[in-house]
Design a protein around this nucleic acid. Structure first.
Lengths: 122, 122
DNA sequence: TGCTAATATCGCTGTGTGACGATGAATCAG
DNA sequence: CTGATTCATCGTCACACAGCGATATTAGCA
């Protein structure tokens, strides 16, 4: 595809990471894990999905290095690998959503008025 | 990633934005546009894809508010809506990739470094 | 007026994957 | 040991979508 100087491998790596966040269910899992360590069983109950579905998403996030697993007895505890690492990404995404006006349109906790952020461009 | 979590609608909004970056082709388009304004024809030639494919990806990115179009004559010029807005996101992703041992270097223009956009001549 | 170039859009197809249920492997309780 | 609980994995299905070609549309050119 990129026969030129740009790096295909790098592009694939970035795209794969973004895929982790591009799925509503995975994003919800990350949100829930942001509140602390949870077992698969807890997440299944909270998300109202099949256990196999949740387990597969967790495997994906582990493979991305975003979360870590800690088996204990019959259960397996999952937690964010590094919460501080995710904050800049979420913040950057929030900034973009605000700047593009999608946030005010879709996110209700942002003062539901018609006001949209104005881009300061030069 | 706040402790309170996001509602479903907000989660969908975030996921939709991340989808724009989760596709290797779209990411490559953003990289190329980071070097300056381009026509569809230029991108088609550079990416070695069908014109309809490139056009569809461009529509997606416009709908996300990440790029803007400027019709001129028969051609349509596309450019990043706000390069400065993308840099924090790419930088955050790069930090995660480094921390997870999957570091990969993306296009220079999309990464941090405060200097303004430089147009390259074809 | 045609004719070409550039783009957007439509329909189609193959692939990827998110969802589920079923099954197997551990682990604990009785 | 027997049975229940918890999780990972497998097979399957349905749907989304990236890719393509074909076509419509618009703008420039002879």
């Amino acid at each position: 595809m990129n026969q030129g100087g740009l790096d295909d491998v790098a592009t694939e790596a970035y795209a794969h990471l973004f895929q982790a966040f591009a799925e509503p269910t995975r994003l919800a899992i990350l949100q829930h894990l942001a509140s602390g360590e949870h077992r698969v069983r807890d997440l299944v109950e909270h998300m109202d999905l099949a256990q196999s579905t949740v387990s597969k998403h967790l495997s994906f996030l582990v493979e991305c290095g975003l979360i870590v697993s800690r088996p204990q007895g019959r259960a397996t505890w999952y937690a964010l690998a590094d919460p501080e690492l995710l904050k800049p990404l979420i913040t950057a995404a929030e900034t973009i959503l605000e700047a593009t006006g999608k946030s005010a349109q879709l996110c209700q906790h942002l003062r539901g008025g018609g006001e949209t952020l104005v881009l300061e461009k030069n």
